[in-house]
């Protein structure tokens, strides 16, 4: 790891001023479970590290019938998975948080940090760049081993997949993210926070170098909402999934009134599938409709070569998440 200077201010205004105007100047430490690994691998080389753990207002959760569930950016994944408010109002979110990584990671990793963690793409992690091009500008991912890479949103030049398994759960619930920067606060739907970079040097988040995530707000759940997520993951132990699907269904009678289906590890960003939603709306959830929604979710998927079977896995994950949700299995 390269040397850096370190500060741990108590006010978010101070954080913003201490951050640099360019990526690479400074980084925000908010748990550090991913950032320190990136720094050890010399992928991220901040000259200054701002630990925001002392920003008291970024801790804790609150619930308000109108505003919904507010989750401070520094709430750890453990806290979120055990949070009574989250478990009551967004049980699928708590479940997704409790499935992430390992207990030791969840004890340190924060929800804000989870939104900002960097892709696990092995070309990126080996220092070959987020877009991983060779000296002639050709993609190493397309030439090489892309078994874990994107099947959607993969027209290039980005082929990595977004690493968060919690973000899709939040997006399925319709969450919004609040940021704070030199111009004050701003807020956007969480799905808009994630962007597919077009050039090396761009990041996969709509976060400016001198902004921080302050909180995430999940709107109050409507009546008759059912939610579930499903991971295709090989190991019980600490492992990254091949794909996940998070589903929030609003029922009307025995029919689906509206649905949000979000996949992770399939695209450079959490993938909100309009096609899957449309396939469900107005129908009762059955094995057949769930399967059709799974098929719709991957209708536009395309293989990069070695990752062909992820298309089938995503299809099945969506189907199973929908069936779980309809059965009222929250996990």
């Amino acid at each position: 790891m390269r040397a850096f200077e370190y500060a741990s201010p108590k006010q978010k205004q101070q954080v913003v001023e201490l951050l640099g105007k360019h990526w690479g100047d400074a980084e925000v430490l908010a748990g550090g479970t991913d950032l320190l690994a990136l720094m050890k691998d010399d992928i991220v080389r901040p000259k200054r590290l701002i630990n925001i753990i002392d920003l008291k207002e970024l801790h804790g959760t609150t619930f308000d019938a109108k505003a919904g569930l507010r989750i401070g950016a520094l709430v750890t994944l453990t806290e979120l998975s055990e949070d009574p408010l989250a478990s009551k109002h967004c049980p699928m979110l708590a479940a997704a948080a409790s499935d992430a990584a390992s207990p030791q990671v969840r004890n340190m990793a924060t929800i804000g940090g989870n939104m900002c963690q960097r892709p696990r793409c092995w070309y990126f992690r080996n220092g070959l760049g987020l877009l991983a091009k060779d000296s002639e500008g050709k993609s190493l991912v397309l030439q090489g081993d892309n078994r874990y890479h994107a099947i959607l949103g993969n027209d290039g030049p980005a082929y990595f997949v977004g690493p968060s398994t919690v973000a899709p759960a939040l997006i399925a619930y319709g969450a919004r993210i609040r940021l704070f920067g030199p111009k004050g606060p701003r807020e956007l739907p969480l799905e808009k926070f994630f962007v597919i970079p077009k050039a090396e040097g761009e990041r996969e988040h709509d976060l400016q170098p001198n902004e921080i995530v302050t909180e995430i707000v999940v709107p109050p759940p409507a009546a008759n909402v059912r939610a579930a997520h499903y991971e295709v993951r090989q190991k019980e132990a600490f492992d990254w999934p091949y794909v996940t699907a998070s589903v929030v269904l609003q029922q009307e009678g025995d029919k689906v009134h509206s649905a949000r289906v979000v996949m992770s590890h399939v695209a450079p960003i959490p993938w909100l599938s309009e096609e899957a939603s449309q396939a469900l709306v107005g129908k009762a959830v059955t094995e057949a409709t769930a399967d059709a929604a799974g098929a719709a979710a991957v209708k536009n998927a395309k293989s990069l070569g070695r990752n062909k079977q992820k298309i089938k896995m995503a299809h099945v994950a969506v189907k199973r998440a929908i069936l779980r949700a309809a059965k009222g299995e929250q996990a």
Binding site: Y6, S8, L29, G32, T33, L36, A37, L49, N51, I53, T78, S102, P103, Q104, V105, N107, M108, F238
Partner: peptide, 24 residues
């Protein structure tokens, strides 16, 4: 932060000590 061999308790919680800075 992937294998657990450095696990310690910090504030009574299990954490990977390789993924925490001494200063924090």
């Amino acid at each position: 932060g992937a294998c657990g061999a450095c696990t310690v308790l910090m504030d009574s919680k299990a954490v990977y000590s390789c993924s925490v800075l001494a200063i924090e």
